Amino acid sequence: MIIKINGKYYKIKKIEKNPNGKYTITTENGKKYEFKNVKIFSEEELK
């Protein structure tokens, strides 16, 4: 799965839903981001 952050695309390693309704997304390079609204892309959609 792929996520778009600030115009760049990252591969997703893990998605966790937090009790506060936000999502914590861990990218393949180990960085964590927290979002309220998340749009996930499949690799097929990006081709």
Rank of each mutant, 00 (worst) to 15 (best):
K11G: 04
M1H: 07
I5C: 08
M1F: 13
V38H: 05
K8F: 08
T26V: 09
G7R: 03
E44M: 07
K8E: 09
I15F: 06
K31V: 09
G21S: 02
K39R: 13
M1G: 08
N18T: 09
N6Q: 11
F41H: 08
N6M: 09
T27I: 13
Y23M: 08
F35K: 04
G21A: 01
I40G: 09
K17H: 07
N37P: 03
S42V: 12
K32T: 14
T27V: 12
N29T: 10
I5R: 02
V38R: 03
T27R: 01
K4Q: 13
Y9N: 04
G21Y: 01
K14T: 14
I5Q: 01
K39S: 11
I2A: 08
N6D: 11
N29P: 01
I25E: 00
I15P: 00
N6I: 03
G21Q: 02
I5N: 01
N37Q: 11
E28D: 08
G7H: 04
K32A: 04
I3E: 00
G7A: 03
K11N: 06
K22T: 15
K8A: 08
I5K: 02
K11S: 07
E45S: 13
I40F: 11
I12P: 01
K11R: 13
T24D: 04
N18M: 14
K36F: 12
I3A: 08
N29C: 11
P19F: 06
G7V: 01
N37Y: 15
K31Q: 12
T24L: 12
E16M: 06
N20I: 03
K11I: 09
K4C: 15
I3Q: 00
K14A: 13
I15N: 00
K39L: 14
I5S: 02
K4N: 10
K36L: 13
E28N: 09
P19K: 12
F41I: 14
I3G: 02
N37V: 11
K31Y: 09
I12C: 04
K17S: 05
E34I: 14
Y23L: 10
S42C: 15
N6G: 13
E45V: 07
K36E: 15
I15H: 00
K31W: 10
T24W: 08
Y10N: 03
K22I: 15
N20V: 03
I40Y: 07
Y33A: 02
G21N: 04
S42I: 12
N18Q: 12
N18Y: 05
N37C: 15
I3T: 03
Y10E: 09
E43N: 04
I5L: 06
K17I: 13
I25A: 02
N18I: 03
I25F: 04
E28M: 14
F35W: 04
P19L: 09
Y33L: 06
K4M: 14
K17W: 09
Y9L: 09
E45D: 14
I40L: 11
F35D: 02
G7E: 05
K47Q: 13
K36S: 14
K13R: 10
P19D: 11
I3F: 03
F35P: 02
Y9M: 07
K36A: 15
K8D: 05
I12Y: 01
K32I: 14
T24F: 07
I12T: 02
N20L: 04
K17V: 11
I25D: 00
G30I: 00
L46D: 07
G7F: 02
I5G: 01
